[in-house]
Amino acid sequence: MARMKFLCDSERCIECNGCVTACKNENEVPWGVNRRRVVTLGDGLPGEKSVSVACMHCSDAPCMAVCPVDCFYHTDEGVVLHDKDMCIGCGYCFYACPFGAPQYPQSGAFGQRGKMDKCTFCAGGPEVDHSEEEFKKYGRNRLAEGKLPLCAEMCSTKALLGGDGDVVSDIFRDRALKRGKGGEMWGWGSAYGKPEPGTKKPEVKS
């Protein structure tokens, strides 16, 4: 069973924002809502590192646990999605999320929060696959086309990997072995928990 994960290799990421605009492009995300963004640490200083961040689709998702209306669900592939028709825009998932992934467009004249929006792993949402409804609320459903998230597929340096956790960690491990350096797998631990014994998880080096 495929278990979908994201991994950003900070040794590779050059902060080109390809992943960010790929997401905008594929999901027609409006100005002001950023499902994915790139964070740079030590900007302009030796040792500068960048990492691309979006919803990590946590194994034990804090957003899900705190949602008062239980609009989140985990798909069989490990993707964390939510039903926008239920979302009340309360913002609790944002506070719970270790990655700041949930986003809220402003709605109405009084600056009320709109329904939460976040990365869907390009898997649409709880509507008929490829329907107008699904696209308008959640964006494109690439998984249902047998494809992976566009941000990862288009990353300029293949720093951002997305897909079946085993495949992704294999790719990363081979690369890390070759260069003799792991690179920070930023967020992997907090999203997916400690590597389980016996499973081949890439090493986390800080």
């Binding site: 080109c16 924002n17 992943c19 605009t21 790929a22 566009l150 288009m154 300029s156």
Partner: peptide, 9 residues
């Protein structure tokens, strides 16, 4: 298959 911000948009 890779693109930067410009190509991806």
């Amino acid at each position: 298959g890779a693109h930067c911000a410009k190509g991806a948009s």
